[in-house]
Amino acid sequence: MEKINIICVDDQQEVLDSVMRDLRPLTPLVRLEEASGVADCLKLMEQIDDEGDMVAVVISDQVMPGESGTELLGKVASDKRFAGTRKVLLTGQATHADTINAINEGQVDNYVEKPWQPEKLLSIVKRLLTLYILDKGLDHTEYMPILDNATLFSKLR
């Protein structure tokens, strides 16, 4: 069966570790992956697609050396292979312009400010994951323990 991936992107390993830890309750039903920057994330997504797997959510930091989180999310948004992929910007220092770009170019589904509340981040990701699974017409019963019930009910009603 194809695997569902959730990718976290941050150039600071310490931050990446924390995000991964907070999302750990989602494993092993989905696969958590980490990337250290835009190029690394795109490489990873390429690889996941080659293996026939899916990317449900990308959670990216904004300020990174080289390209920014908004640029990454914009690239993901315009890539047909990842049409349903949900996008989260996780940042502590986005400017007003960054925020506008995130919405217009990056088409973010959610914006989380650092420092974040673990439960809140987890519930956001669960909600986006639920939407992805329903969008793709996957068998949601397999993922029940990690789905957002409210979203599930409102969509299935």
Partner: peptide, 27 residues
């Protein structure tokens, strides 16, 4: 050790393959 995210990924894949670990354990 300052392993990069991609180093960690390839190490995890290695453990999955060589030690036949489930992906979480490999990570």
């Amino acid at each position: 050790s300052y392993a990069s995210a991609s180093d960690l990924r390839s190490a995890a894949r290695y453990y999955e393959r060589e030690l036949e670990l489930p992906q979480e354990a490999a990570k």
